[in-house]
Design a binder for these strands. Structure first.
Lengths: 199, 199
DNA sequence: ATATCCATGTAACTTGTTACATGATTTG
DNA sequence: CAAATCATGTAACAAGTTACATGGATAT
Protein backbone atom coordinates (compact mmCIF):
# COMPACT_ATOMS: atom_id res chain seq x y z
CA UNK A 1 0.00 0.00 0.00
CA UNK A 2 1.53 3.27 -0.99
CA UNK A 3 1.66 6.45 1.04
CA UNK A 4 -1.05 8.21 -0.93
CA UNK A 5 -3.51 5.49 -0.08
CA UNK A 6 -2.58 5.69 3.56
CA UNK A 7 -3.12 9.44 3.55
CA UNK A 8 -6.57 8.96 2.06
CA UNK A 9 -7.26 6.51 4.85
CA UNK A 10 -6.36 8.99 7.54
CA UNK A 11 -8.22 11.86 5.91
CA UNK A 12 -11.22 9.58 5.64
CA UNK A 13 -11.52 9.84 9.40
CA UNK A 14 -11.18 13.58 9.74
CA UNK A 15 -9.62 16.69 8.29
CA UNK A 16 -5.94 17.11 8.99
CA UNK A 17 -2.89 19.12 8.07
CA UNK A 18 0.28 17.47 6.79
CA UNK A 19 1.92 18.28 10.05
CA UNK A 20 -0.80 16.63 12.07
CA UNK A 21 -0.82 13.59 9.83
CA UNK A 22 2.83 13.00 10.45
CA UNK A 23 2.38 13.05 14.19
CA UNK A 24 -0.69 10.90 14.06
CA UNK A 25 1.06 8.38 11.89
CA UNK A 26 4.12 8.34 14.07
CA UNK A 27 2.14 7.42 17.12
CA UNK A 28 -0.35 5.07 15.58
CA UNK A 29 1.29 3.24 12.68
CA UNK A 30 4.84 4.48 13.10
CA UNK A 31 6.32 1.15 14.07
CA UNK A 32 5.26 -0.52 10.85
CA UNK A 33 4.86 2.33 8.40
CA UNK A 34 7.15 5.34 8.47
CA UNK A 35 6.69 8.61 6.63
CA UNK A 36 8.63 11.85 6.75
CA UNK A 37 7.54 15.35 5.79
CA UNK A 38 9.59 14.97 2.67
CA UNK A 39 7.24 12.28 1.48
CA UNK A 40 3.97 13.46 3.03
CA UNK A 41 3.84 16.98 1.63
CA UNK A 42 4.51 16.00 -1.97
CA UNK A 43 2.03 13.16 -1.67
CA UNK A 44 -0.70 15.52 -0.45
CA UNK A 45 0.04 17.89 -3.28
CA UNK A 46 -0.24 15.03 -5.71
CA UNK A 47 -3.55 13.90 -4.23
CA UNK A 48 -4.95 17.38 -4.53
CA UNK A 49 -3.94 17.64 -8.17
CA UNK A 50 -5.75 14.38 -8.73
CA UNK A 51 -8.88 15.77 -7.06
CA UNK A 52 -8.86 13.17 -4.31
CA UNK A 53 -8.41 15.70 -1.52
CA UNK A 54 -9.09 19.40 -1.13
CA UNK A 55 -7.25 21.91 1.06
CA UNK A 56 -8.22 25.07 2.88
CA UNK A 57 -5.67 27.59 3.98
CA UNK A 58 -6.19 28.56 7.58
CA UNK A 59 -4.52 31.82 8.48
CA UNK A 60 -3.10 31.96 11.97
CA UNK A 61 -1.53 34.88 13.73
CA UNK A 62 0.71 33.56 16.43
CA UNK A 63 1.88 30.58 14.42
CA UNK A 64 2.46 29.64 10.78
CA UNK A 65 -0.53 29.34 8.49
CA UNK A 66 -1.69 25.85 7.81
CA UNK A 67 -3.42 23.89 5.10
CA UNK A 68 -6.20 21.69 6.29
CA UNK A 69 -6.86 18.77 3.99
CA UNK A 70 -10.22 17.16 3.46
CA UNK A 71 -11.02 14.06 1.44
CA UNK A 72 -13.35 14.38 -1.56
CA UNK A 73 -16.02 11.85 -2.54
CA UNK A 74 -13.76 10.70 -5.36
CA UNK A 75 -11.01 10.27 -2.79
CA UNK A 76 -13.21 8.05 -0.67
CA UNK A 77 -14.17 5.99 -3.60
CA UNK A 78 -10.58 5.59 -4.70
CA UNK A 79 -9.55 4.55 -1.22
CA UNK A 80 -12.16 1.82 -1.04
CA UNK A 81 -11.31 0.65 -4.52
CA UNK A 82 -7.65 0.36 -3.62
CA UNK A 83 -8.38 -1.57 -0.45
CA UNK A 84 -10.54 -3.94 -2.41
CA UNK A 85 -8.17 -4.62 -5.27
CA UNK A 86 -4.89 -4.79 -3.44
CA UNK A 87 -3.33 -7.68 -1.59
CA UNK A 88 -0.79 -6.62 1.02
CA UNK A 89 2.85 -7.22 0.12
CA UNK A 90 5.02 -9.34 2.33
CA UNK A 91 6.28 -7.68 5.48
CA UNK A 92 9.66 -6.11 5.06
CA UNK A 93 12.19 -6.67 7.76
CA UNK A 94 15.77 -5.50 7.83
CA UNK A 95 18.24 -5.75 10.64
CA UNK A 96 21.76 -4.45 10.74
CA UNK A 97 22.24 -5.89 14.19
CA UNK A 98 21.69 -9.36 12.79
CA UNK A 99 24.15 -8.64 10.00
CA UNK A 100 26.74 -7.71 12.59
CA UNK A 101 25.94 -10.79 14.58
CA UNK A 102 26.26 -12.91 11.48
CA UNK A 103 29.86 -11.78 11.17
CA UNK A 104 30.35 -12.23 14.87
CA UNK A 105 33.86 -13.69 14.74
CA UNK A 106 35.18 -10.60 13.04
CA UNK A 107 34.20 -8.37 15.92
CA UNK A 108 36.51 -7.42 18.69
CA UNK A 109 36.02 -7.71 22.42
CA UNK A 110 32.67 -6.82 23.89
CA UNK A 111 31.46 -5.03 20.81
CA UNK A 112 28.61 -7.39 20.00
CA UNK A 113 27.45 -7.40 23.56
CA UNK A 114 27.40 -3.65 23.51
CA UNK A 115 25.26 -3.72 20.38
CA UNK A 116 22.83 -6.22 21.78
CA UNK A 117 22.46 -4.22 24.96
CA UNK A 118 21.73 -1.09 22.96
CA UNK A 119 19.22 -3.10 20.97
CA UNK A 120 17.47 -4.25 24.09
CA UNK A 121 17.28 -0.72 25.37
CA UNK A 122 15.67 0.44 22.16
CA UNK A 123 13.17 -2.40 22.20
CA UNK A 124 12.24 -1.54 25.74
CA UNK A 125 11.78 2.08 24.79
CA UNK A 126 9.50 1.06 21.94
CA UNK A 127 7.53 -1.16 24.23
CA UNK A 128 7.02 1.65 26.69
CA UNK A 129 5.98 3.94 23.90
CA UNK A 130 3.36 1.46 22.80
CA UNK A 131 2.15 1.01 26.35
CA UNK A 132 1.84 4.77 26.48
CA UNK A 133 -0.32 4.73 23.38
CA UNK A 134 -2.41 1.98 24.89
CA UNK A 135 -3.05 3.98 28.03
CA UNK A 136 -3.74 7.19 26.19
CA UNK A 137 -5.96 5.86 23.44
CA UNK A 138 -6.90 2.35 24.48
CA UNK A 139 -10.50 3.30 25.19
CA UNK A 140 -11.16 5.03 21.91
CA UNK A 141 -9.32 2.65 19.64
CA UNK A 142 -11.16 0.41 17.21
CA UNK A 143 -10.72 -3.34 17.62
CA UNK A 144 -8.65 -3.25 14.45
CA UNK A 145 -6.34 -0.62 15.84
CA UNK A 146 -6.04 -2.68 18.98
CA UNK A 147 -4.92 -5.64 16.91
CA UNK A 148 -2.24 -3.48 15.35
CA UNK A 149 -1.08 -2.35 18.72
CA UNK A 150 -1.02 -5.94 19.88
CA UNK A 151 1.20 -6.72 16.93
CA UNK A 152 3.72 -4.13 18.03
CA UNK A 153 3.65 -5.26 21.61
CA UNK A 154 4.12 -8.90 20.72
CA UNK A 155 6.79 -8.09 18.19
CA UNK A 156 8.97 -6.10 20.53
CA UNK A 157 8.44 -8.50 23.39
CA UNK A 158 9.58 -11.29 21.12
CA UNK A 159 12.63 -9.32 20.02
CA UNK A 160 13.46 -8.65 23.61
CA UNK A 161 13.24 -12.31 24.54
CA UNK A 162 15.50 -13.21 21.69
CA UNK A 163 17.99 -10.50 22.60
CA UNK A 164 18.15 -11.72 26.19
CA UNK A 165 18.94 -15.21 24.99
CA UNK A 166 21.61 -13.90 22.65
CA UNK A 167 23.13 -11.79 25.36
CA UNK A 168 23.49 -14.84 27.54
CA UNK A 169 25.03 -16.89 24.76
CA UNK A 170 27.48 -14.13 23.98
CA UNK A 171 28.59 -14.03 27.59
CA UNK A 172 29.12 -17.74 27.54
CA UNK A 173 31.13 -17.51 24.34
CA UNK A 174 33.23 -14.81 25.90
CA UNK A 175 33.85 -17.11 28.84
CA UNK A 176 32.50 -14.63 31.33
CA UNK A 177 30.19 -17.03 32.94
CA UNK A 178 30.24 -20.20 34.98
CA UNK A 179 27.93 -22.29 32.89
CA UNK A 180 25.27 -23.61 35.27
CA UNK A 181 27.31 -24.48 38.36
CA UNK A 182 30.82 -25.61 37.53
CA UNK A 183 33.68 -23.53 38.92
CA UNK A 184 34.89 -20.67 36.75
CA UNK A 185 36.91 -22.10 33.87
CA UNK A 186 39.59 -20.50 31.73
CA UNK A 187 38.14 -18.37 29.02
CA UNK A 188 40.26 -19.30 26.02
CA UNK A 189 38.49 -21.69 23.70
CA UNK A 190 40.27 -24.94 22.91
CA UNK A 191 42.66 -26.35 25.40
CA UNK A 192 41.82 -25.65 28.95
CA UNK A 193 41.39 -28.88 30.73
CA UNK A 194 44.26 -30.63 32.33
CA UNK A 195 47.53 -29.78 30.73
CA UNK A 196 48.47 -32.84 28.78
CA UNK A 197 47.98 -32.46 25.07
CA UNK A 198 48.38 -34.80 22.20
CA UNK A 199 51.09 -34.60 19.56
CA UNK B 1 25.57 -1.58 7.26
CA UNK B 2 25.61 -1.11 3.54
CA UNK B 3 25.69 -3.80 0.91
CA UNK B 4 29.34 -3.29 0.02
CA UNK B 5 30.36 -4.05 3.57
CA UNK B 6 28.21 -7.17 3.57
CA UNK B 7 29.84 -8.35 0.36
CA UNK B 8 33.26 -7.88 1.89
CA UNK B 9 32.08 -9.96 4.80
CA UNK B 10 31.02 -12.83 2.60
CA UNK B 11 34.12 -12.69 0.44
CA UNK B 12 36.16 -12.72 3.62
CA UNK B 13 35.07 -16.32 4.05
CA UNK B 14 35.78 -17.55 0.57
CA UNK B 15 35.90 -16.61 -3.08
CA UNK B 16 32.55 -16.27 -4.75
CA UNK B 17 30.83 -15.06 -7.89
CA UNK B 18 28.06 -12.48 -7.78
CA UNK B 19 25.63 -15.17 -8.65
CA UNK B 20 26.74 -17.39 -5.81
CA UNK B 21 26.69 -14.51 -3.36
CA UNK B 22 23.08 -13.81 -4.12
CA UNK B 23 22.07 -17.38 -3.43
CA UNK B 24 24.15 -17.60 -0.33
CA UNK B 25 22.68 -14.40 0.99
CA UNK B 26 19.17 -15.45 0.19
CA UNK B 27 19.47 -18.58 2.24
CA UNK B 28 21.52 -17.27 5.10
CA UNK B 29 20.63 -13.63 5.70
CA UNK B 30 17.75 -13.30 3.28
CA UNK B 31 15.06 -12.81 5.89
CA UNK B 32 16.71 -9.74 7.37
CA UNK B 33 18.85 -8.41 4.53
CA UNK B 34 17.73 -8.62 0.94
CA UNK B 35 19.82 -7.96 -2.15
CA UNK B 36 19.06 -8.38 -5.83
CA UNK B 37 21.45 -8.80 -8.76
CA UNK B 38 20.72 -5.22 -9.67
CA UNK B 39 22.40 -4.10 -6.49
CA UNK B 40 25.03 -6.84 -6.08
CA UNK B 41 26.75 -6.57 -9.46
CA UNK B 42 27.23 -2.80 -9.37
CA UNK B 43 28.42 -3.06 -5.77
CA UNK B 44 31.05 -5.64 -6.71
CA UNK B 45 32.20 -3.46 -9.57
CA UNK B 46 32.49 -0.56 -7.23
CA UNK B 47 34.49 -2.59 -4.71
CA UNK B 48 36.88 -3.69 -7.42
CA UNK B 49 37.45 -0.14 -8.57
CA UNK B 50 38.27 0.73 -4.99
CA UNK B 51 40.79 -2.11 -4.82
CA UNK B 52 38.94 -3.91 -2.04
CA UNK B 53 38.26 -7.01 -4.10
CA UNK B 54 39.82 -8.60 -7.17
CA UNK B 55 38.15 -10.73 -9.82
CA UNK B 56 39.27 -13.56 -12.06
CA UNK B 57 37.38 -14.51 -15.17
CA UNK B 58 36.75 -18.22 -15.30
CA UNK B 59 35.92 -19.47 -18.76
CA UNK B 60 33.43 -22.28 -18.91
CA UNK B 61 32.26 -24.20 -21.89
CA UNK B 62 28.88 -25.63 -21.14
CA UNK B 63 27.71 -22.61 -19.17
CA UNK B 64 28.31 -18.87 -19.10
CA UNK B 65 31.69 -17.59 -18.04
CA UNK B 66 31.92 -16.33 -14.52
CA UNK B 67 33.87 -13.82 -12.49
CA UNK B 68 35.17 -15.14 -9.23
CA UNK B 69 35.74 -12.44 -6.67
CA UNK B 70 38.41 -12.52 -4.01
CA UNK B 71 38.93 -10.07 -1.18
CA UNK B 72 42.19 -8.11 -1.03
CA UNK B 73 44.14 -7.32 2.15
CA UNK B 74 42.87 -3.75 1.91
CA UNK B 75 39.36 -5.15 1.64
CA UNK B 76 39.81 -7.15 4.81
CA UNK B 77 41.14 -4.17 6.63
CA UNK B 78 38.30 -1.98 5.46
CA UNK B 79 35.77 -4.56 6.55
CA UNK B 80 37.16 -4.77 10.04
CA UNK B 81 37.39 -1.02 10.27
CA UNK B 82 33.75 -0.65 9.29
CA UNK B 83 32.60 -3.23 11.79
CA UNK B 84 34.51 -1.45 14.48
CA UNK B 85 33.34 2.07 13.78
CA UNK B 86 29.71 1.44 12.96
CA UNK B 87 26.79 1.01 15.27
CA UNK B 88 23.88 -0.90 13.74
CA UNK B 89 20.88 1.18 12.78
CA UNK B 90 17.50 0.41 14.21
CA UNK B 91 15.71 -2.55 12.70
CA UNK B 92 13.40 -1.57 9.89
CA UNK B 93 9.98 -3.12 9.84
CA UNK B 94 7.18 -2.43 7.42
CA UNK B 95 3.88 -4.17 7.13
CA UNK B 96 1.16 -3.56 4.62
CA UNK B 97 -1.01 -6.15 6.26
CA UNK B 98 -1.04 -4.08 9.43
CA UNK B 99 -1.92 -1.01 7.43
CA UNK B 100 -4.90 -2.84 5.99
CA UNK B 101 -5.87 -4.05 9.40
CA UNK B 102 -5.61 -0.52 10.75
CA UNK B 103 -8.30 0.54 8.30
CA UNK B 104 -10.28 -2.57 9.09
CA UNK B 105 -13.73 -1.00 9.07
CA UNK B 106 -13.33 0.10 5.49
CA UNK B 107 -12.88 -3.43 4.26
CA UNK B 108 -15.68 -5.51 2.94
CA UNK B 109 -16.76 -8.99 3.91
CA UNK B 110 -14.12 -11.59 4.62
CA UNK B 111 -11.33 -9.64 2.97
CA UNK B 112 -9.26 -9.13 6.11
CA UNK B 113 -9.61 -12.72 7.09
CA UNK B 114 -8.40 -13.72 3.68
CA UNK B 115 -5.37 -11.49 4.07
CA UNK B 116 -4.52 -12.81 7.49
CA UNK B 117 -4.81 -16.37 6.29
CA UNK B 118 -2.46 -15.65 3.40
CA UNK B 119 -0.13 -14.03 5.89
CA UNK B 120 -0.12 -17.09 8.09
CA UNK B 121 0.62 -19.29 5.11
CA UNK B 122 3.61 -17.17 4.19
CA UNK B 123 4.92 -17.17 7.75
CA UNK B 124 4.64 -20.92 7.85
CA UNK B 125 6.51 -21.20 4.57
CA UNK B 126 9.27 -19.00 5.95
CA UNK B 127 9.45 -21.08 9.08
CA UNK B 128 9.80 -24.25 7.06
CA UNK B 129 12.46 -22.65 4.94
CA UNK B 130 14.43 -21.75 8.05
CA UNK B 131 14.00 -25.22 9.46
CA UNK B 132 15.36 -26.47 6.17
CA UNK B 133 18.41 -24.29 6.56
CA UNK B 134 18.83 -25.54 10.09
CA UNK B 135 18.79 -29.14 8.98
CA UNK B 136 21.07 -28.57 6.04
CA UNK B 137 23.66 -26.36 7.68
CA UNK B 138 23.04 -26.63 11.41
CA UNK B 139 26.19 -28.63 12.01
CA UNK B 140 28.55 -26.30 10.19
CA UNK B 141 27.09 -23.02 11.32
CA UNK B 142 28.94 -20.74 13.69
CA UNK B 143 27.26 -19.95 17.01
CA UNK B 144 26.69 -16.45 15.66
CA UNK B 145 24.93 -17.75 12.61
CA UNK B 146 22.86 -19.96 14.82
CA UNK B 147 21.76 -16.91 16.80
CA UNK B 148 20.67 -15.28 13.56
CA UNK B 149 18.71 -18.31 12.59
CA UNK B 150 17.13 -18.37 16.03
CA UNK B 151 16.08 -14.80 15.45
CA UNK B 152 14.25 -15.75 12.30
CA UNK B 153 12.60 -18.72 13.88
CA UNK B 154 11.42 -16.77 16.89
CA UNK B 155 10.31 -13.86 14.76
CA UNK B 156 8.11 -15.89 12.46
CA UNK B 157 6.77 -18.00 15.29
CA UNK B 158 5.78 -14.83 17.05
CA UNK B 159 4.12 -13.43 13.93
CA UNK B 160 2.24 -16.64 13.53
CA UNK B 161 0.97 -16.54 17.10
CA UNK B 162 -0.20 -13.02 16.63
CA UNK B 163 -1.90 -13.83 13.36
CA UNK B 164 -3.76 -16.73 14.94
CA UNK B 165 -5.04 -14.44 17.66
CA UNK B 166 -6.11 -11.85 15.10
CA UNK B 167 -7.83 -14.45 13.00
CA UNK B 168 -9.90 -15.47 15.97
CA UNK B 169 -10.81 -11.93 16.85
CA UNK B 170 -11.82 -11.24 13.27
CA UNK B 171 -14.13 -14.20 13.32
CA UNK B 172 -15.69 -12.97 16.50
CA UNK B 173 -16.15 -9.50 15.04
CA UNK B 174 -17.78 -11.03 12.01
CA UNK B 175 -20.17 -12.84 14.33
CA UNK B 176 -19.16 -16.23 13.06
CA UNK B 177 -18.48 -17.67 16.43
CA UNK B 178 -20.20 -18.50 19.67
CA UNK B 179 -17.92 -16.77 22.12
CA UNK B 180 -16.90 -19.38 24.68
CA UNK B 181 -20.19 -21.18 25.42
CA UNK B 182 -23.13 -18.84 25.30
CA UNK B 183 -25.71 -19.50 22.61
CA UNK B 184 -25.07 -17.77 19.32
CA UNK B 185 -25.92 -14.13 19.79
CA UNK B 186 -26.81 -11.47 17.27
CA UNK B 187 -23.68 -10.09 15.66
CA UNK B 188 -24.48 -6.38 15.79
CA UNK B 189 -22.53 -4.61 18.47
CA UNK B 190 -24.34 -2.89 21.30
CA UNK B 191 -27.47 -4.20 22.84
CA UNK B 192 -27.99 -7.90 22.87
CA UNK B 193 -28.19 -9.13 26.36
CA UNK B 194 -31.29 -10.32 28.10
CA UNK B 195 -33.31 -7.20 28.51
CA UNK B 196 -32.71 -5.44 31.82
CA UNK B 197 -30.09 -2.73 31.72
CA UNK B 198 -28.84 -0.36 34.29
CA UNK B 199 -29.78 3.28 34.26
C1' DA C 1 20.05 32.33 25.78
C1' DT C 2 18.72 28.06 23.79
C1' DA C 3 15.77 24.79 22.22
C1' DT C 4 11.40 23.13 20.85
C1' DC C 5 6.89 23.61 18.83
C1' DC C 6 4.41 25.07 15.09
C1' DA C 7 4.12 24.64 9.74
C1' DT C 8 5.14 24.15 4.85
C1' DG C 9 7.80 23.10 1.14
C1' DT C 10 11.82 21.87 -2.22
C1' DA C 11 16.08 19.82 -4.00
C1' DA C 12 19.70 16.85 -3.91
C1' DC C 13 20.84 12.54 -2.95
C1' DT C 14 20.77 7.57 -1.83
C1' DT C 15 19.31 3.20 -2.52
C1' DG C 16 17.11 -0.16 -4.42
C1' DT C 17 13.97 -2.86 -7.59
C1' DT C 18 12.28 -4.36 -12.14
C1' DA C 19 12.83 -5.28 -16.56
C1' DC C 20 15.61 -6.02 -20.42
C1' DA C 21 19.43 -8.14 -23.12
C1' DT C 22 21.82 -12.57 -24.09
C1' DG C 23 21.99 -17.58 -24.57
C1' DA C 24 23.53 -22.51 -23.88
C1' DT C 25 22.11 -26.52 -21.09
C1' DT C 26 19.53 -29.32 -18.36
C1' DT C 27 15.30 -30.94 -16.28
C1' DG C 28 10.35 -31.99 -16.20
C1' DC D 1 8.17 -28.18 -25.57
C1' DA D 2 8.43 -25.27 -21.62
C1' DA D 3 10.75 -23.95 -17.82
C1' DA D 4 14.45 -23.45 -14.79
C1' DT D 5 19.58 -23.06 -13.96
C1' DC D 6 23.64 -20.82 -14.85
C1' DA D 7 25.75 -16.00 -15.38
C1' DT D 8 26.58 -11.09 -16.02
C1' DG D 9 25.35 -6.59 -16.65
C1' DT D 10 22.70 -1.98 -17.58
C1' DA D 11 19.03 1.38 -17.70
C1' DA D 12 14.84 3.12 -16.35
C1' DC D 13 12.19 3.92 -12.75
C1' DA D 14 10.31 4.21 -7.91
C1' DA D 15 10.41 5.78 -3.44
C1' DG D 16 12.03 7.65 0.07
C1' DT D 17 15.44 10.33 3.35
C1' DT D 18 18.18 14.32 4.68
C1' DA D 19 19.13 18.80 4.67
C1' DC D 20 17.96 23.37 3.73
C1' DA D 21 15.02 27.59 3.79
C1' DT D 22 11.91 30.41 6.75
C1' DG D 23 10.44 32.46 11.18
C1' DG D 24 7.36 33.81 15.26
C1' DA D 25 6.00 31.97 19.93
C1' DT D 26 6.74 29.68 23.90
C1' DA D 27 9.13 27.03 27.32
C1' DT D 28 13.46 26.03 30.11
Amino acid sequence: MDLRTVLLGFLGRGDLTGYEIRHLMQRSVGFFFGASYGSIYPALKNLEEAGLVRSTLVVQEDRPNKKVYEITPEGRERFRARLAEEMPADDGYRSELLMHLFFGEEHEGGRLLEMVEAYEARCEAKLEELHGVEEEFGEVMSPYQRMCLLSGLSHFRSRLDWAAEVEEQLRVLAGEVDVSHRSRAGSRGGEQGGGRREG
